[in-house]
Structure formats: C-alpha cells, structure tokens
C-alpha cells in the first residue's frame, strides 16, 4: 500500500516538488541578508524556528532528568548491602588487596587505587592516547559550536562531542575518575542552566521591547546592526543548547553504565 502511494510522490530531486515551494525559498533568499549567517540550517534552526529548538532543548533536559530518577540509587544502606568485595591495588608493589567487610572504611591514599571487579582497564597505551586526545576533541567541539554559522555544526553537535570526550575519559580510565572531573551536582546544575540561557536570551528580547526570541532587539545593547545582533543571538542560544546537551549526555551515560550506583562503570 505504501509502495503504491509512492507512485504519486514527486520524483526524487525534483526542484518543483511542493515541499520546495512554500516557505523554504524565502528562508534561502533572505536568511543571509537578515541574519548575517551563511549556514541557512543554523539560521532557520536558531532564529526562524527558535521556539521549536527551545522546547527541544527542554525535551533533552527532561530525558536526562527521567534517566536520573529511573536509575539513580541514593540510599546508602542499600548500596552497602549490595556492595561486593572491594579490590585495591597498591601502586608501588602492584599487589591487589581484597576487602570483604563492607563497613570497613578505606582512606583515600595516593598509594592505593580502587579497582572494578569486572572491568580493570590497565592498558597504558589506551590511557595515554585518550588523555592526549581529549583536549583536542574538546577544542574541536568548541570550534563546532562557535563556527556553526559558517560551516555545518552548532550547539547540538558541539554539545554531543563535548559530552563524548568526557565519556571517553570514563571509558579509558574508569567512572570514578570521570565523576571526579565532572561531579554529578555540577552536571545537574549545568543541564537546566543551558535551557535557562536559551530562555534568558529570549526574555532579554522581550525586555528590549520586541517579541520573544527576536534577537534583532539586542542590537542596541550590543551596539551593532540588527543583522549582526541576530547572528550573535544565534551564537548565545547555541551555547545554551551545547551546555544542556553535554550535561545531559554525561548524566545519561553515568546512570546507564553504572545502573545508578555511580560506583563502578563500564
């Protein structure tokens, strides 16, 4: 039935198909003049259809929230009951110590390294390579966010790449190391902060006397032409999107890989 329906579809790549004749030509012809943004996809995403993108960011944030509530195990008592034997490696002698009593407290010491019972990545090469690569990946992610006006890219992609670089740390070292670098509370603050940055830029436009998310309103405060102000407004909301997406990806990964315990991950 669906195949029969395709016979009525316009041919592939037909420039006169109905999809190309409604608002799309307007976007294409006016986007550069009005927003000073050569990448039309970014211009339409963050300017013409910015309501869409704002609630999209809210959806991503609520997905992170849902993962947190579904999986996170908070109660300390239950954790201790479920905790299996803990393993520590003495770094100088390479001896492995096994601790059976769950209540025994082991102090943080530079000579002891806690090991995961299932997963002990010890390959020096993988670890060193990931450590060298991570800053470059993060730099590339920032470039993708900032250069989304002129080349493919933008807040979503940059945020995902930033999150992926931190997931790489968790994969190559262990989850405990990466949770020290990106504490759960910080990520929990950053994720709604991204949505608030987006909505805040929109509210600023209202304060300047224009419609919600009409970035041309910011021209006076920024001291630029309205076109350049719209371009800058796109950049601000992209930063908000990137922050929200990065934090959400890390929250989801940390909860999925450790089934909520945040003790030992993949």
């Amino acid at each position: 039935m669906l195949v029969h329906a395709t016979l009525d579809f316009p041919g592939w790549g037909d420039p006169n198909a109905p999809a190309h004749l409604h608002v799309a030509p307007e976007y294409l012809e006016q986007a550069y003049e009005k927003t000073a943004t050569p990448n039309v996809v970014t211009a339409v995403l963050a300017d013409y259809r910015s309501y869409d993108t704002m609630f999209e960011t809210a959806v991503v944030f609520s997905a992170g929230l849902a993962c947190f509530f579904l999986l996170r195990v908070q109660s300390r008592k239950k954790e201790e009951e479920e905790e299996e034997d803990r393993y520590f490696r003495h770094l100088a002698t390479d001896m492995v110590i096994r601790i059976r009593t769950p209540s025994m407290h082991v102090p943080d010491s530079p000579y002891l390294q806690q090991l995961d019972p299932y997963w002990t990545p010890r390959s020096l090469i993988v670890r060193a390579a990931c450590r060298v690569l991570t800053p470059f990946i993060q730099l590339f992610a920032l470039y993708v966010v900032a250069h989304g006006h002129h080349s493919p890219g933008g807040g979503f992609q940059g945020g995902v790449i930033l999150g992926a670089s931190l997931i790489l740390v968790a994969l190559s070292h262990d989850l405990r190391t990466s949770m020290k670098m990106t504490p759960e509370k910080l990520m929990g603050v950053l994720s709604p902060a991204g949505v608030l940055i987006y909505a805040g830029v929109g509210a600023l436009c209202v304060a300047a006397g224009h419609n919600f998310l009409d970035y041309g309103a910011l021209a006076e405060w920024l001291g630029t032409a309205p076109e350049a102000a719209r371009s800058l407004g796109i950049l601000f909301v992209e930063v908000g999107v990137a922050v929200c997406v990065m934090a959400t990806m890390i929250i989801i990964y940390a909860n999925l890989s450790s089934a909520g315990g945040h003790k030992q991950g993949l």
Binding site: N39, P152, G153, F156, Q157, V160, A164, L171, Y253
Partner: peptide, 18 residues
C-alpha cells in the same frame, strides 16, 4: 551536511556507547 554531522556524533557515537 548538518544532519550528517549530527548523525555521526549522536547516532554512531553516543547511541552505540549507550
């Protein structure tokens, strides 16, 4: 190109890890 970039980072990268 934008969709391809998103799919490469999101679909092929993060979803596989998930």
């Amino acid at each position: 190109v934008d969709v391809a970039f998103t799919e490469a980072s999101v679909g092929a990268g993060v979803s596989t890890v998930f």
